[in-house]
Design a protein around this nucleic acid. Structure first.
Lengths: 357, 357
DNA sequence: CCATTCTGTGTTATCGGTAACATAACGTTA
DNA sequence: TAACGTTATGTTACCGATAACACAGAATGG
């Protein structure tokens, strides 16, 4: 049983394949009646055009390669969703791969993806291997790095400064009167977003001339809730007088909250805890956890719209200078970091906007 | 600047393109020395084979289409991870799409994917539209439904019975002496996994001749923590004497736990809460939440290995009778449903295995 | 009323690989 | 040593669509 192909449609409709091709792409000029006839035959025979052959012929694969560290993470899942939403209507399909936070796997995936001749590549910022970087550059297609603003971008950028955002959140902890502030982060975080957040934390502490020694690295990324809990316990043991902690992510922060709950340490009175990423858990935790809000959906959508702009203009597009799109980041203050120093009123959650750059 | 193609390699190495093709695929017999020479040229010129052209020619796209309802869900993220892990080494690439729990979107995505001529399709069980179903059948490639055992399978199946698993968990609630048991589920759940879990809940209650009226439907899937919290509050208002609740998923269950926390209802003494899925939060919650454990990774891996088997045997494979692979499901008992009726010892978490079918 | 543009459609070549078959050089066996 | 199999490589013909060009007939304009 052979699959229906365009030639079959052409024969059945009494036209040439070229006419069928045009009818299906609302491309050139086609007599409305001819198109109707062709579309009817297409429906009757259940014809699905072969995009592989089409791409091969037109030298436009219709693919966009997307690389994320993990799928099991709201941030990247939302980013992928935003990308799919933006790309699908434009006839582009996402080729999604996850690296599991491993550079060698990223390198392999980049090669696999490039062998599909994508029209653009979207990669989550990370220190790529030299070979990976070279492949991306040599691919001759737009490359978009997301989720950070790299010091040495490969091409375009859609992101924000994790460092600045973490510094702003740390400043908030300082503002509510905390002075013995710790940080729970990831081990081996060189070149990652987590490292940028750690640096932002240190920036703020140093600017305030506070002690910056309460740093705890748990495991290699990604770290989860249980790592956050264990780290918090270790931190409490080593520095029992700690009065605030910034965590590299919300799940980690929730783990820290649960550690306090188990240890009978009241939040936010004796301990303030802040996270990063506005995951669902930070809102539903009791108390709710203050967090840095970034929209993965927005990043994905911005990347998708940038891609459309880059691929849209038939020519010249190749030499658009690298764009940098900055997405909004916010500091969401919740119950876990309420100001109890004044001991006046328990204000509800307030919201501060941090404009990036 | 033209991209390097196989003919360039052939010319540079002084052989024919066919020889290059063979050398790159460790296909037929090639003199070791010739291969070495070719591979060297490939490296020097940074050649990346065009899989689109290759697939076009060999009529093997190397794609496997995968459809999940959502990426932002541990279950499906892990499934995708398991699939990628299993497929990548076999030279297959996953084309991932998410439907956002919408049948029309699923239908569109199926068409998009089929236009890439995948060698197999993996779809998360859901009542598909008739057209979607027909397209899948007509595609002439293996179709694998995952995450349930459908009443009327399209082709192969890798899953388990959500209904039986939910019934087993409900039985556990009965076993610890609860009699006024509620269920928090999703609205408009026709044909979904959530509905199967609801039915399993009812099965167990009816078998035990218990009242089965405490049913609450919140919103359309997917429902999250906050919906769980609100539903729990509503349930407490409507049936204040409820002593146990089964939730359609862990995030929802955590929301219910948080509601109790806010309302000052002690767990598990006055209220037992159980979830589904073994999400991270169920382990880290205080108290930890009893849950049904299913490994998305295992389902993805099983599907990948089934695909390899189906595509491996050069011929005959087309007519393998539909396979049904059942994955293990477990009931993990944790602090949220400890048996307090005996009031003897506080046992640590125990683990019961539920063999499916 | 003829030259010119515009419409709608067809023809041909091709995209970059691979399947299938062909072939040359060599070793092996009767 | 002739016949034959083996091994390494080359030749040819596609896979299913589209780009680029060709072209007939209708519409338009001076």
């Amino acid at each position: 049983m052979q699959r229906v192909k365009m030639a079959d449609i052409a024969r059945a409709a009494g036209v040439s394949t070229m006419t069928v091709s045009r009818a299906l792409r609302q491309d050139g000029r086609i007599a409305p009646e001819t198109r109707r006839k062709i579309l009817r035959v297409v429906r009757e025979l259940g014809y699905v055009p072969d995009r592989i052959a089409a791409g091969f012929s037109s030298r436009r694969s219709g693919f966009v390669g997307v690389l994320v560290p993990s799928l099991n993470n709201t941030h990247f899942a939302e980013t992928a969703a935003g990308l799919q939403n933006g790309l699908h209507p434009a006839g582009l399909q996402m080729l999604l791969g996850y690296t599991n936070y491993q550079k060698t796997q990223a390198e392999q995936l980049i090669e696999t993806m490039l062998s599909r001749r994508p029209e653009a590549m979207v990669v989550t910022y990370d220190d790529h291997t030299p070979r990976a970087r070279r492949m991306l550059v040599d691919a001759g297609v737009p490359v978009i790095e997301i989720w950070e603003t790299p010091p040495r971008p490969i091409g375009h950028v859609v992101g924000f400064s994790n460092r600045q955002a973490a510094a702003a959140m740390t400043q908030h902890l300082i503002d509510i009167g905390r002075t013995r502030i710790g940080f729970i982060g990831e081990a081996n975080d060189a070149g990652t977003r987590g490292a940028q957040r750690r640096l932002g934390f240190l920036d703020a502490l140093r600017a305030a001339k506070l002690d910056a020694s309460r740093m705890l690295a748990t495991a290699a990324p990604p770290i989860g809730m249980m790592q956050g809990r264990e780290a918090m316990m270790a931190l409490l043991q080593q520095w029992p007088d700690t009065d605030a902690v910034l965590c590299v992510s919300d799940p980690c922060a929730y783990g820290a909250v649960s550690a306090c709950q188990l240890a009978g340490i009241p939040l936010p009175d004796r301990m303030a805890i802040a996270g990063f990423g506005n995951f669902e858990i930070s809102l539903c935790s009791v108390p709710a956890i203050s967090t840095v809000t970034v929209s993965g959906l927005a990043i994905g959508a911005a990347a998708a719209s940038l891609i459309q702009r880059l691929l849209g203009g038939d020519l010249a597009a190749r030499d658009v200078p690298p764009q940098a799109v900055f997405v909004d980041v916010g500091i969401e203050i919740r119950g876990s970091t309420l100001d109890t120093s004044a001991l006046t009123d328990k204000r509800g959650p307030t919201r501060a906007r941090l404009r990036d750059r």
